[in-house]
């Protein structure tokens, strides 16, 4: 029972960290129809900036994360008009090529600037100590990640489904010509969607550094996992992504605790089976 509980907490926290990173990718792929393989690179940059701000500049954990999100957005912002705008609506191959190129370049530059070693983000005392929730103690950091995930879900859900902004965003994506004719500035909404996706990636990269360690090859190593999550959940679906993250996080963590020998074999097998049965993801909209 004790093992079960600690596995469950770890699995949920890992799933939530995955979700914070992946939901941005899911939005870009589902709403903007861009296969953004550079998403992992933005998460990595977020992790590096958070580590740099806390270790080198002496900021606190929360301020460091805020700076990391801001910094990543500032780095990513010029890339949208320069690079991304050229691949909207282009064939997947072109999108893959351009975004893998961005990821490669990010790996090379980050390694040149920061070196090949693992980077850590020291936890503040409030998160490093276990929290008593009545019948058990949970590591504070796990609790923080889970809470952040819940906030992100709620905020995105409300913003996309229930605000005027969300309505216009969905209109700009579904029928760009009609939306433009009605006076919606579609390119601004695309830029906004891109910024939100990048900010979430940076946030997830920083708070999830305990699960996905920050090192230069982060950008490629985990993009496979992110893509799997998005396509299992169904691109563009918030609840689908949440469900897929929790499910795959549980499979991954449980597998590592209980049957470490099997590695990722059954993970990828189950992914193939799920996509085979549900090509649009568990909760994806049929195209």
């Amino acid at each position: 029972m004790i093992t079960f509980f600690s596995i469950a907490v770890d699995a949920v926290a890992y799933g939530m960290a995955l979700f914070i990173i992946c939901i941005g990718l899911s939005l870009m792929m589902g709403l903007m129809r861009v296969v953004n393989l550079a998403h992992g690179a933005f998460a990595m940059i977020g992790g590096y900036l958070a580590s740099y701000a806390t270790m080198q500049l002496g900021f606190g954990y929360f301020a460091g994360i805020a700076l990391a999100v801001l910094g990543t957005v500032l780095i990513a912002l010029p890339l949208e008009p320069l690079l991304y705008r050229r691949i909207y609506g282009k064939p997947e191959l072109m999108q893959v090529l351009m975004t893998v190129g961005i990821a490669f370049a990010a790996i090379g530059i980050v390694n040149y600037l920061m070196g090949p070693t693992l980077k850590t983000i020291p936890l503040p005392p409030i998160l490093a100590t276990p929290v008593d929730i009545g019948f058990r103690n949970i590591a504070g950091h796990r609790l923080f990640v889970i809470a952040s995930g819940i906030v992100v879900v709620a905020a995105l859900w409300i913003a996309i489904e229930y605000t005027v902004l969300g309505v216009k965003l969905r209109a700009a994506i579904e029928k760009p010509d009609m939306a433009r004719a009605l006076g919606v500035r579609t390119s601004a909404y695309f830029l906004g969607c891109y910024v939100v996706a990048t900010a979430l990636a940076a946030f997830g990269g920083a708070v999830g550094a305990e699960f996905l360690p920050i090192e230069p090859f982060y950008a490629l190593r985990y993009i496979v996992t992110f893509l799997v999550v998005v396509s299992v959940g169904g691109a563009g679906s918030i609840l689908g992504s949440l469900f897929a993250c929790l499910l795959l996080g549980a499979i991954d963590v449980t597998g590592r605790y209980l049957v470490p020998d099997f590695g990722n074999f059954f993970f990828y097998l189950s992914v193939i089976l799920v996509i085979f049965a549900y090509p649009n993801g568990l909760m994806g909209r049929a195209r």
Binding site: F104, G108, P216
Partner: peptide
């Protein structure tokens, strides 16, 4: 690693 940047 320069190779990664160049090919990117």
């Amino acid at each position: 690693f320069h190779w990664m940047t160049v090919i990117g």
